[in-house]
Amino acid sequence: MPDYTADELMTVVAARQLADRTVCFVGIGLPSAAANLARLTHAPNIVLIYESGTIGSRPEVLPLSIGDGELAESALTVVSVPEMFRYWLQGGRIDVGFLAAAQIDRYGNINTTVIGDYDKPSVRLPGAGGASEIATSAGEVFVIARQSARSFVDRIDFTTSLGHAEGGSSRDRYHAPGGGPTRVITDLGMLTPDPVTRELTLTSIHPGVSVEQAKAATGWKLRVADALAVTRPPSAAELSALRALEARTARAHAEAAE
């Protein structure tokens, strides 16, 4: 048995994708954990930007919301929300947008709006928030999501955030300044778009996970790279940094409840 969980490995692998000095627009939840782990390990100069307006946040603990006070206190500066979306995101200052997804399809299009029909939804999800414009304005997009046949689906019920549209060069017709999704990190492996068809392809598989398992957790016929890599397991340093961050976070949120 490995000495780490699938979620821990997913977060570690996601963190590794962020190079030092990257300017990263961070979604709440899994992306925020990965981006802060990157900052606390190999990328001390990464610039974390949250849509609440905080630029260069360096929180000691993970925020529960996108606007926890520590994001502002630890930031280089805090701007208004209109400024954040207009000058910084639309203005082209973001290298990587880091998003989560409720549903994703083979071309990296994301649904966070509804399950079922828009006007009569079976499940109403929170909606777009900043994601639609992060997906089209950030230089590139990373996605982190737990992989299952319910979330990695043949057809998403609603396109909230544009990925590679219907594949190939079809994204081009929207004239999005950003390049779209370049990697999808899951608890089973990593998927990257085929350079020509733009279909998400399994290019790395996590240790102990079988290709069959990954295929079963995908709602379309998952393509597997010829040169399938096996993900490097978390190092002791990565794991201890992540666990310390999560322990600090749990303690802080418990205290705040009192």
Binding site: E51, V81, P82, M84, F85, R86, L89, Q90, N109, G127, A128, G129, G130, A131, S132, E133, T136, S137, T159, T160, S161, L162, A165, R171, Y174, H175, A176, P177
Partner: peptide, 27 residues
């Protein structure tokens, strides 16, 4: 989306009838 709504408030504050943004592409 947030980008549009933030811009719509800014347009309201600016006394303009609408806000323009590079948004909702493919959404």
């Amino acid at each position: 989306g947030h980008a549009a709504m933030a811009s719509a408030y800014a347009a309201g504050a600016s006394g303009l009838p609408f806000a323009a943004l590079r948004g909702y592409l493919g959404s």
